[in-house]
Computed example of a mutant assay.
Amino acid sequence: MERSDPRSPDQPGQPTPITCVQAEGLIERLAFGGLPGPIATLLRQHLSGCASCKSEYRGRMETQARLGRQVRESHRGAISVEHGGLGPERQEPRIRPKSLRRFAMFVVPAALFFFATRLSSDWNFEPPLTAHWVEGTSWIGGHALDADSVSVKLVRSDLILTEPGARCRIEAGSFDLSIDPGARLLVISSLTRRVRLEEGQVELEGRATLETPLGMVEVFDGEAQITLDGGGLEVLARSGDVVLVDARGRRALPVVEADAVVGL
C-alpha cells in the first residue's frame, strides 16, 4: 500500500510541503537532532497530517531513547568499577600488574626484615635463657649473680664468668647448662638458645646445643661434659645421643665411662 501524499498545491511565497518520500530520509535526522530548523518545521507539519510517517518517527524516537539508556547504564558501570564497586553487569575490579609489583617491592622486603630482626634480637619471647645462682659469685654481663641476686635473664652478647668456687646454671625449656668454676661463656642469642663456651668446663643436659671455637656439641635427651682449655676440646658423653660437629665432620659419640674422653 502506497503512502498518501498530503502535499497541497504550491502557493506563492509559501515553502513547498514535504512529501512522504522526502520524509523517509529526514525522520531519522529529526529524531537524533541533526535537522536544520526550517526543514524540521516543515517535517513536523507533515508528520501532523501523515499517520504513517508519524508512526515511523515514534519508532525512531523509541530506538533513540533505548540507546540512550544503554549508554548511561554502561557509563555508570564503568564509574562504579573504577571506584572499586560493582557495575550493572557485576564486573570485578581488576588489579593492575604494575600496582601488584609495586606492592610486592615494598611489602615483601619489609616482612623479611621484620622477621629477620625478631630472630636476630633478644626480644621478650618465652622461654628466654635464664641464669640461676648455685654458689659463689658469677658475673653476667657485668652484673653479679650471687645469693642476693639469684636469677638473671640473659640477652644477646652477655658474657658469663664464674669465679673460683662459683657455680651457676642456665635453663630454658629443654636447655640445661651447668657451669663449673673458672668458666667463661658468651651468649650469642637468648631467643635461639645459642651459647658459646670460651673456656672452662660445663655439663650440658636435655635437648641442647653448645658452640665452641673448635666445634659444636649437640645433645639429644642426654648429658655430656664439655671441657675447653689450652689442651683443646674434650667431650664426655654420659647418656643419650651426643653428637660432635667439628673439622672432621659430624660424628656421634658413644656413651663411655667417666675416665673415657673424646677430645681434640
Rank of each mutant, 00 (worst) to 15 (best):
V21P: 09
Y57W: 01
A23M: 05
H46R: 04
Q14R: 13
G85Y: 00
D122W: 01
A224D: 07
V217P: 04
P88G: 10
G173V: 13
S174T: 12
L30D: 15
D180V: 04
A166F: 06
H132R: 05
Q70N: 11
E82V: 05
V242D: 11
S190K: 00
P181F: 07
V217N: 12
P164F: 02
R3F: 02
A104I: 04
R76A: 14
R167F: 08
T41D: 15
A40D: 10
R3N: 09
V108S: 08
R29Y: 03
D148M: 10
F32N: 08
L185H: 02
L204Y: 07
F32Q: 07
R7F: 04
G77T: 15
K153D: 06
E223D: 12
D146I: 09
C168Q: 06
D246C: 05
R118P: 02
Q45A: 13
G136Q: 00
H46K: 04
F175S: 02
E24S: 11
G141I: 08
A144M: 03
T117K: 01
R60G: 06
W123T: 14
R94V: 07
K54P: 01
I79L: 09
P15K: 01
Q14V: 15
L253W: 13
S80R: 10
E205M: 10
E199H: 15
R169A: 08
A183P: 01
P36T: 04
P127M: 07
Y57K: 00
E218G: 03
R169D: 06
E223N: 10
S80T: 05
R250D: 07
Q22K: 10
K153A: 03
D148Q: 13
R196A: 12
G84V: 04
Q201N: 12
A147N: 06
T41S: 14
R194I: 04
V81Q: 05
P12I: 09
D10I: 09
D246R: 07
Q22G: 10
P15H: 01
G87D: 14
L161I: 04
F114Q: 02
R90M: 05
T130F: 05
Q70V: 10
L244Y: 01
A131K: 01
S48A: 08
I18S: 06
S239I: 11
L244D: 05
M216W: 00
P213S: 01
L161K: 14
P109F: 03
R184E: 08
D229H: 02
A237S: 12
E73N: 10
P36M: 02
L186D: 06
I170R: 01
V261M: 03
P38K: 00
E135S: 14
V107S: 04
G263K: 12
I226V: 05
M1K: 03
L35Q: 06
T212R: 00
W123R: 09
E199F: 11
I27S: 11
F114I: 09
P12L: 07
A23R: 03
P15G: 03
S74D: 14
V108F: 06
L154D: 12
L47G: 02
D148T: 13
S151H: 07
A31E: 03
G230W: 10
Q45I: 06
L100F: 13
